[in-house]
Design a protein around this nucleic acid. Structure first.
Length: 194
DNA sequence: TCTACGATCTTT
DNA sequence: AAGATCGTAGAT
């Protein structure tokens, strides 16, 4: 287990998004391996939360890379993003993970849901990590409540369009900004990926 | 203040 | 195909 340094995040958001596949998220005794992500480019990306400028909610996205941006979606789900670059307004949404360690804890947090080894969908990842917006802005590169470790990067990567952003401009809807580990079945909408 | 709606998930 | 559920952002 080795923490990735803050400099690792100071790169183009697409580069970091692809590099996040296979890395490990740690929350207490729970360790998850990232299998699916989406890149949100910045204020010029009409699907990104930074499209409306700086707000209280999206403040972490405008800060230095290496921090979490967590927000409540549909009043129910806590979505985890990894902020990249330095003040770019860009971040990577963590969409799916496999449970590496702490299965019993994950099962408890998910209230006995089936197939807890595969967390396909960002809401499930949020449940497994017991996330709340209280943790938004938390640093991922130092020891703390939520950490990102090196794990082992994915060798095969598939890509496709982002999910749930029909409101965005056509060019942004069509952009190939969703990435998944080609060797994992823990992915949403796998058939739409190439 | 008020209102509409969402980077989702589960059940019908 | 639709309901759950609530904070956010933009409008008033």
């Amino acid at each position: 287990m080795s923490l990735l340094p803050q400099s690792w995040y100071y790169r183009d958001v697409i580069e970091v998004a692809r590099d996040l596949l296979g890395r490990h998220l740690k929350r207490g005794s729970v360790v998850l391996r990232i299998t699916e992500v989406e890149a949100y480019l910045g204020p010029h990306d009409s699907a990104a939360h930074t499209r409306m400028g700086r707000t209280r909610r999206n403040a972490p996205m405008w800060g230095p890379g290496g921090h979490a941006y967590i927000y409540l979606c549909y009043g129910i789900h806590n979505m985890l993003n990894v902020v990249t670059g330095n003040g770019d307004g860009a971040a990577v949404l963590i969409r799916s993970c496999e449970v590496v360690r702490g299965l019993s804890v994950v099962r408890h947090r998910r209230q006995g849901a089936e197939g807890p080894l595969l967390l396909a969908g960002p809401g499930k990842v949020g449940q497994a990590l017991d996330l709340s917006t209280q943790l938004s802005g938390h640093a991922l590169f130092t020891s703390g409540k939520l950490e990102l470790h090196a794990g082992g990067p994915a060798t095969s990567i598939r890509k496709g369009t982002r999910i749930g952003i029909a409101y965005a401009r056509r060019k942004d809807v069509r952009a190939q900004l969703r990435f998944a580990d080609g060797d994992s079945h823990c992915v949403t909408g796998r058939s739409a990926l190439s």
